[in-house]
């Protein structure tokens, strides 16, 4: 074969190869196009539109009117309720997220042992996590009823007169925290998967070295589980800060705005007062607040989250 013939044959292969690759690329894009189109139309476009809307006053019925930074000025300087609702949301999150992590992890550890009826217990604990938010809210409304509710009736057995859970400014937030604890089953499943991924030889080696139960927990279990806890923390922050259904159904922000969480206030502005521009500004401020919080948590991760791959590299 002459050099010229060889070169011609090679270029034919290359051309074929390029055509094949291009065809694959086109096919790949065709396959993902419904999701890309969905993302662009249903997520990206509304986000950009809401950012633009936050500089307008718009009641849906008439064309939007440009107001510059007026919505943001109102949010930060003249309307006291956004900061009030943000404060309530943060207080609730600070109480709810750690408790959910601790309870979820504790239950997962208990259910990671060899006891009879393990799968039944796991199912029972996981069950509340799959129930609809509205149904759960209505159920807890009854549980929290002070005269006839299950919770106060149970407390009365011990001689304790329970508080007016949903009718008190003081107790309404603890009530929501307790209610959220009921659905730790979702997190428990993830912790359980994390616990089962920890190699048993680590525990065996620790036992041989004379480590007690606490040492095994703090030196092996928690460090090995730290990526899972970190994941739960991040998703927990995002999920908990967005609390809405419970307060919308159970208290409508009351009493006296004591459970007026941020998203409920945003919802009121958008869909009850039809102030779409102001609601968009509220949404963007909230988005940025959660984003910053998430970034801060990511920044702290290097101090307490241990990835197996990293430690291998270190070694």
């Amino acid at each position: 074969m002459s050099l010229a013939q060889f070169a011609k044959k090679q270029s034919g292969f290359t051309r074929l190869n390029i055509t094949y690759q291009r065809g694959e690329t086109v096919l790949a894009w065709a396959m993902v196009s419904p999701w890309v189109a969905g993302f662009l139309l249903l997520t990206a476009f509304p986000m950009v539109a809401s950012l633009a809307l936050s500089f307008f006053e718009w009641n849906i019925l008439t064309p939007p009117e440009y107001v510059g930074l007026a919505n943001y000025h109102k949010l930060f300087f003249t309307d006291p309720l956004p900061m009030h609702s943000l404060k309530i949301t943060v207080i609730f999150s600070l109480a709810s997220i750690p408790l959910n992590i601790v309870f979820g992890l504790t239950i997962a550890m208990l259910l990671n042992t060899n006891i009879r009826g393990l799968s039944v217990f796991r199912t029972i604990y996981y069950l509340p996590a799959i129930l609809s938010g509205v149904a759960v809210a209505i159920l807890w409304q009854w549980i929290f009823s002070s005269d006839f509710g299950l919770l106060n009736t149970a407390l009365r057995v011990f001689g304790i007169e329970g508080p007016a859970w949903l009718g008190s400014k003081i107790w309404v937030l603890p009530a929501f925290v307790i209610m959220r604890l009921w659905s730790v089953g979702g997190g428990m499943i993830i912790y359980l998967a994390g616990l089962q991924a920890i190699p048993t030889d680590l525990y065996e080696a620790a036992e041989i070295d004379g480590a007690n139960w606490w040492q095994r927990i703090f030196r092996i279990t928690l460090p090995m589980l730290s990526p899972t806890i970190f994941f739960q923390l991040i998703t927990g922050v995002i999920f908990t800060m967005q609390i809405f259904t419970e307060t919308f159904i159970m208290t409508d922000g009351g009493p006296a705005n004591a459970s007026l969480f941020y998203l409920l206030y945003l919802y009121r502005q958008a869909f009850q007062n039809f102030k779409m521009g102001y609601a968009s500004a509220l949404a963007w401020v909230f988005f940025i607040a959660i984003l910053l919080l998430t970034l801060v948590l990511f920044a702290t991760a290097k101090f307490w989250v241990f990835y197996e791959a990293e430690s291998d590299e270190d070694n």
Partner: peptide, 21 residues
């Protein structure tokens, strides 16, 4: 045009009276 919003404001204060706060 904003009586709904006004009602929300009133209600939050009336709540204080209704719950004995």
């Amino acid at each position: 045009t904003n009586f709904g919003e006004i009602t929300q404001i009133m209600q939050a204060q009336i709540d204080l009276l209704m719950i004995g706060e």
